[in-house]
Simulated assay, not measured.
Amino acid sequence: MPVQEVLFGFGAHSGIDDGPELLRMAQQADRDGLDIFSLSDHPYIGGRLDAYASIAFVLGRTRHIAGFANVTNLPTRPAPMLARTVTTLSSLSGGRVVLGMGAGGLWDRISDMGVPRLSPGDAVEAFEEAIVLVKRLSGGGPPVTYHGHHYRVDEIEPAPVAAPPVWTGSVGRKSLAVTGRVADGWLPGHAADWLSERYRTSRPVIDEAAAAAGRDPGEVRTVFNFPGRITDRPEPATRDRDGRWIGGSADQWTEELTGAVLEHGASGFILFSPRGGTPDPGSAGRWAQEIVPAVREGSRRRAPGRTRSGPGPALA
């Protein structure tokens, strides 16, 4: 099977007053050839831009780059309406959207929004139902009737637009297994890279669940939310004493990420600042103009089987 094209992007946690800067960064990333941008989804924080309204606005002002919520706060965005949102975004943007999905983490704040609190087991069950339902309400076909424990729809016409790829932020074993069964990608979490304990212990759970469901585990890509500093000169150490990546020169980043692609199967990287926030414009520019092209070239030169699935970013 051909190797998936590696995706590169940047992540942002944008406040109400940050809209112009977010748009500027996304437009520059679009010109620089990045594949994707992500926004956090915390609707209980009044000072934040709404993720989906912002994604729609940015997609309307760009040509190639895709957007996604990293990850969607599912309990506050019911699956049937979420399906309508993402298929509409996909239709209007020419397929430039990914559906990031999470079971819900900050339940104290989520319940403050008037959403009934779910037990961890019920939250994971609702998470899987939501992914299944979004996909069934996409791609055309006859009306959908679905009666799950958490979602129910009766004779609802699906959108004639294919569902976007679904990437999850799964952490626990049950939600990791959901990712293997029904999702298209996995985001291990901030700073949890290919050398981390989280990756080493979690990825096999996804692979086993995918195989048990009759899927090729390689169909579930791993995309890393990757914070770090980009320095002018090489650093004596690019990882801290706990083995966590802290950054280095453009050449050190290139070597590290190329190795991650070729030796560990990484298929995407989303840049964040060293503290996990929005990268500064200088770092974002060096990422897009120096590091990303070098990693793409190194990966293709040493692994010629890589393919894209058509025009625009190969997101699936």
Rank of each mutant, 00 (worst) to 15 (best):
A316K: 07
S202Y: 00
T72Q: 04
G282T: 12
A103T: 05
G9K: 01
A12M: 14
L133K: 03
V153R: 11
E197N: 05
G259R: 07
Y52M: 09
G94W: 00
P158D: 11
P158C: 09
R244H: 00
R300K: 09
L176K: 02
L187V: 05
H150T: 11
E219S: 04
G243H: 04
H149S: 14
R275G: 04
L39W: 00
G282S: 11
R233G: 00
A66I: 12
R152G: 05
S283Q: 09
A211T: 13
M25A: 11
M81K: 08
F269Q: 00
W167H: 09
P204T: 12
P313E: 11
T72C: 01
V134G: 10
H147M: 10
F224Y: 07
R77Y: 02
P311Y: 08
L49I: 09
G67I: 10
A162R: 15
G141R: 12
L187Y: 01
P120F: 10
D216N: 15
P281I: 09
G95Y: 05
D122W: 04
Y151N: 14
A130C: 10
P78F: 07
V166W: 02
G11Q: 03
G95I: 14
E128N: 12
G265F: 11
R173N: 08
L22E: 14
G102F: 02
S170G: 07
G19V: 09
P43R: 03
P116L: 08
A250Y: 05
A183V: 12
E125N: 13
A209D: 14
L23F: 01
S170V: 05
D108W: 02
L106Y: 12
A288I: 00
A211Q: 15
V58H: 06
R296M: 08
P281V: 10
H64N: 09
M113Q: 10
A314M: 05
G180N: 13
H150A: 04
V166P: 13
G105E: 09
G139P: 15
D32E: 11
R275F: 03
Q4P: 14
F10E: 03
T179H: 00
Y151H: 15
V3D: 15
I16G: 03
R306W: 02
Y44D: 08
P304L: 07
L59I: 06
G15D: 15
V115K: 00
V58W: 00
F10P: 00
S249D: 07
G33F: 01
G298W: 02
L92T: 07
R275A: 09
S93Y: 04
F272D: 06
P43I: 13
R203N: 13
R221C: 01
N73C: 02
P304C: 06
L39I: 13
R296P: 12
K174P: 01
Q27M: 12
G180E: 15
A12R: 01
H147D: 09
D17Y: 08
P188I: 01
R308K: 02
G140Y: 14
P116W: 07
P143E: 06
A103M: 09
R244M: 06
A177Q: 10
L23M: 15
T222N: 05
G248H: 02
G247A: 02
L195I: 06
R77T: 05
A123Y: 01
W245Q: 00
T254H: 05
S196G: 04
A210P: 11
T258A: 10
V86Q: 09
